[in-house]
Design a protein around this nucleic acid. Structure first.
Lengths: 153, 153
DNA sequence: CGGTTTGTTTTGAGTAGTTCAAAACAAACG
DNA sequence: CGTTTGTTTTGAACTACTCAAAACAAACCG
């Protein structure tokens, strides 16, 4: 299989990413990673919906397993919004944060206010060794704020 | 029932707090609030364990309901650590953050690095109206770090 | 002090999201 | 191409939590 068309080299890139994380490359894994790139902030079930088109014999459990493997390998980041299923995204390494709408559960990425690694140094770490900071802003998205004011919440 | 002893005035204080939040004062609610003051960062089940001594006919569901009412009234704060049940605490209003040990799930409060309301202003809020920021530091507590190095994780 | 209203708790059942274990299977390496 | 090692499938089970309806108690009012 020599010089492949650009649509296939995209797949090759995904394969490389998976292998580089120390994981074996399989069709379900490639499909999950692609689905996640196309639909960031997806729940396991949403990812499953995205891959079941191209993979007929895949179950939600497989997706859970794949996402757990990816998260463990640092390939994807898991994010647990309160009151909703866990969400997954491909943006890793940068220490970005999340804006969550408390009404429609929309999630949007934000870079931090202060430099690259914000809040990564708490004033008193009580002997803890900090690895990562998870920052979530709870609010109302523009659309829901408008709806709330007419709707009278 | 005039001037009560100090052990009872503690209960009275709890009753006042509940009433001040616009909620009716009931025995289970007082017990839950007291248990939460004694054991901060408790799950609903832990709270239930704490109150079932003094309240015989209480069910976990009642505790869920009471905690939901308290959270809605702003009397307690709910905190959802990834991979663990929701935790509740009495410290509200100050915008404090949490240190979570990824090994033993211990939670410890921290005040923020930058002033009173840190990170409450993201660089780009994308039209969102922000109400609160939830900041969680993931790391290893002192005890678990020691255990991890001898244990070789 | 007792009746009425309103909000709370109990009881029971049910659900979503996730995890576990074992067998079938496929990728990677030689 | 065979072997090893890791992955996926299948099926079931479990935890945390929610819902609805009936029993109940607090707060207010006369």
């Amino acid at each position: 299989m020599p010089t492949a068309p650009s649509s296939l080299s995209d797949t090759d890139l995904l394969r490389q990413m998976i292998r580089a994380s120390g994981l074996k490359v399989t069709a379900p894994r490639v499909a999950v990673l692609r689905a996640l790139q196309q639909l960031p902030h997806s729940s396991a079930e949403r990812v499953f919906d995205g891959v079941k088109d191209e993979l007929s014999s895949t179950s939600p459990q497989a997706v859970y397993g794949i996402l757990a493997a990816f998260t463990g390998a640092g390939l994807v980041r898991r994010f647990d919004p309160p009151g909703s299923p866990a969400l997954f995204e491909c943006r890793v390494g940068d220490n970005h944060h999340h804006l969550v709408c408390i009404r429609c559960a929309t999630v949007r990425d934000v870079d931090c206010v202060i430099g690259q690694a914000p809040c990564l140094e708490p004033s008193d770490n009580s002997g803890f060794t900090i690895f990562a900071a998870e920052v979530t802003f709870n609010g109302l998205c523009e659309q829901c704020r408008t709806a709330a004011s007419t709707d009278d919440d």
